[in-house]
Simulated assay, not measured.
Amino acid sequence: MTQQADILCIGSVLWDVIGRTASSMRVGSDVPGRITRLPGGVAMNIAMTLRRFGMTPALLTAIGRDSEGDELVAEATRMGMVCDHIYRSEDLPTDVYMAVEGANGLIAAIADAHSLEAAGDKILRAMANGALGTADAPYSGTVALDGNLTEELLQDIAGSNLFQHADLRVAPASPGKAERLLALLGHPSATLYVNLEEAGLLCHTQFDDSASAAAALIQRGAHRVLVTDGGKSASEGTQGDIITQTPPAVMVTRVTGAGDTFMAAHIASESEGMNRSAALTRALNAAATYVSGETPL
């Protein structure tokens, strides 16, 4: 029997291979550190944080039928996620993300998400075949959407009746793919979670702070936005109403997944009925705790 999900997490679920060192790094550095392999990807990072906040996410993604994929699905199931709707490809390998982080932040990263991109709208089959919804009775719950999906698929989602009743939360895209979110900028129920650099790319300018970035995105047609700026500030806003807070100061030990943690904590907080200010505070605290190396609860 399929477990009931509180939220759908649509997008990348893969293995994160992260090398971390306490040393500052530059091009050509060769330093000691630790290399880990953990479940990752935007959709997975959000789902893992949602689980820590007591929610049950369902994953809609593409995972290969290779040994790495079997292990990844088993781990997601063990963590309490609904995996019944995952598209398992016979001929596409399980995706992987590789990054190197130093004391001076993210040095470099490569995301091999070719299988997710090749799968396209196959990952959305459960939204139309009755498992989670149909064209006549679309899914009406919360959806956490990976902004790194292909531009074509994001455009399809933006215009699809399958998402017309959903509370659509769009996860941070990597800066190199930020402009893909333009397809969802005018969606009537979409909340965009972006950092200051991504906001600038979407508006084709640079911003000095999160509040001005949030205001510009709303002016460009965004329904609702949350803009973060590392340890400086974060702003949440809708038309004519922007609130800004400063996150706690912490020692940064990791950065990969921080934005996903922030978004998941914010969604979980609002699902519990917290007001805007309290939800933003809790999300900032969760992200700060995460980057300090602790579990964000």
Rank of each mutant, 00 (worst) to 15 (best):
E117L: 14
P138I: 06
T94I: 09
L149K: 03
R26N: 12
I35C: 12
D91H: 14
L124F: 09
D66R: 11
E71W: 04
M98A: 12
L149Y: 04
R78V: 00
E151V: 07
G141M: 03
V31N: 03
T134E: 05
V143G: 07
D66L: 11
A74E: 14
R88W: 04
S89F: 03
A111H: 06
L38V: 15
S29K: 08
S115D: 06
I157H: 02
G64S: 11
V42L: 08
G69S: 11
T61W: 02
G69N: 09
A103T: 00
L149P: 02
N104T: 02
F53M: 09
S140H: 13
S140Y: 04
G80P: 07
A47R: 05
P57L: 07
I63S: 03
S89P: 04
M48V: 14
V31M: 14
V143P: 07
T36M: 12
A113W: 00
A119C: 10
A144Y: 09
T36I: 15
M127S: 09
G64Q: 09
A135G: 00
N148Q: 10
Y139Q: 03
A47G: 07
A43F: 05
A62T: 11
E68M: 13
P138W: 07
N148V: 10
I123H: 08
A62L: 00
D95R: 03
A119P: 07
D146L: 02
D112M: 10
L38W: 00
G102L: 04
G102F: 01
A108R: 00
P32V: 10
A111V: 11
Q155W: 01
G120N: 07
L92R: 08
M55L: 15
A43S: 15
E68G: 03
E117W: 10
L116G: 02
D70V: 10
A58Q: 10
V73S: 01
G64L: 11
M25L: 15
L149S: 02
T49K: 05
S67P: 00
R65A: 15
R37H: 06
T77V: 02
E71A: 15
I123W: 08
A119T: 05
L38N: 13
T134I: 09
R52N: 12
A144N: 01
S89L: 05
V31S: 12
Y87E: 13
I86A: 08
A119I: 06
D95W: 03
V96H: 01
M81C: 14
G147T: 10
L124E: 02
G69M: 06
V27T: 13
V27A: 15
D84N: 10
L72Q: 10
D84V: 02
V96G: 00
G120E: 01
A111N: 11
I110C: 06
A43D: 09
L106V: 04
M127F: 10
G147W: 07
R88E: 12
G141A: 08
D95M: 04
A103E: 05
A109Q: 03
V31K: 12
